[in-house]
Design a binder for these strands. Structure first.
Lengths: 226, 226
DNA sequence: CACCAGTGTGGAGAAGTTGTGAAGGCGGTG
DNA sequence: CACCGCCTTCACAACTTCTCCACACTGGTG
């Protein structure tokens, strides 16, 4: 699930946007002024930011500038004024899109989705995870062990990248369920075991004696470090 | 140097836009009505089109529709009306952006640059895509398999180039919908399947056993790599 | 060295995903 | 205004994967 930071000082609009975005399936965090926005952006690491241009004190342009200094998080600008200077500066500064008030929530959601997908598409420039003999090509969802291809199901793949992203770090079954499903239903935690079993069958030389995906008795699983 | 086709029936505005664009380093060709616009678009192959919504006879929406039937040239819509229905319809039809009159030439230039940047990023700048037995001529929108021509609809073509541009890379149905329509509202994701089916019928030697456009179970589709 | 919660299986049924034909709609064309 | 091509949507079957269970086994603990 994607997390959106909404920065808006007018309470009514903020609430409207929040409700609509949540209904559309986004996680929403909020800030009412520029300074809070910057710290929220750092703390929450949202997938994108919806930013009101007309904030008190530190306005939308200032916020954008400072964000861009250290991040390329997608930004959609909300503006009441339709005069061009703001728009242009906004685009030049790196806002990805903007919407003029009054806008419809539906349009906002459509734009957010478009911007997020564009961002996703750009990102995939060959991201790889390497851990021991395992290489994982994220955009292609391809896994090789010592150079030979391995076929994984979608779930097995998601499980593997969660573990392999931080070798040595221990994950509980609940956390692994989360990484597989996005949301954690209170489903049978031990279905994780089944996926670990299947995954081991495919990537372990000897599934009886795992060397990559290791059990941490009483806690969960981890990927082998070092 | 980028070539821009300006379609505007009001002479004063047309002249203003032309002068400003030329000063900004674009080559400009002009049309004063929809019919001329279509033939100019075909003859001049502009890098993008600035299109007035309120044209006599064949209006901006009609022109966009017809253009989109055989091309994905970026379009910016000029409109005097500001009600959102038009905006959304415009976007659904495949306009890449729109500007409400009165606008400043400066803003127009900024938007054109933004849209062109986006288009370049997507297109990768190349004129041809070659992937296995498939050759795709982007400007002519022509596809050949092992040298023999294949007739594709506009949608099938857009789908194919999206996939073929990065062989092996996996795209979700939502991403593919985006590449087909500029902005995707929540339409039925599985219409992508229908287009894939039709595409396979046309480009696969044996559509039952696809070798080019491959299904990634639980994720989406990809073009065959290696 | 017994105990028992925690873990490793195999497999059956449930759940989800995709392929496909066919129907309906919309706009363009003659 | 009937036709035609294209896109969307639906329904169903075929298929793949996931979940869940039962039972065996293991590793820690006193």
């Amino acid at each position: 699930m994607k997390k959106v930071l909404v920065v808006e000082d007018e309470l009514k609009i903020a609430r409207l946007v929040r409700d609509y975005l949540q209904q559309a399936g986004f996680a929403v965090v909020e800030a009412a002024d520029g300074r809070t926005a910057l710290s929220m952006a750092a703390a929450e690491r949202p997938d994108m930011i919806v930013l009101d241009l007309g904030l008190p004190e530190l306005d939308g342009l200032d916020v954008t500038r400072r964000l861009r200094a250290g991040s390329s998080v997608p930004i959609i600008m909300l503006t009441a004024r339709s005069d061009e200077a703001d728009k242009i500066v906004g685009l030049e500064l790196g806002a990805d899109d903007y919407i003029i008030k009054p806008f419809s929530p539906k349009e906002l959601v459509a734009r957010i989705r478009a911007v997020l997908r564009r961002a996703d598409a750009t990102l995939g420039g060959g991201e790889m995870i390497r851990a021991g003999p395992v290489s994982i090509d994220l955009p292609k969802r391809r896994v090789t062990i010592d150079g030979t291809d391995v076929e994984l199901t979608a779930t097995e793949f998601d499980l593997l990248i969660t573990l392999a992203r931080h070798p040595g770090r221990i994950y509980t079954r609940a956390q692994l369920l989360d990484s597989i499903h996005g949301v954690s239903f209170d489903s049978y935690e031990r279905s994780v075991d089944a996926h670990v079993k299947n995954l081991r069958r495919k990537i372990e030389p000897d599934p009886t004696r795992p060397r990559l995906v290791l059990t941490v008795y009483g806690v969960g699983y981890k990927f082998a470090d070092a």
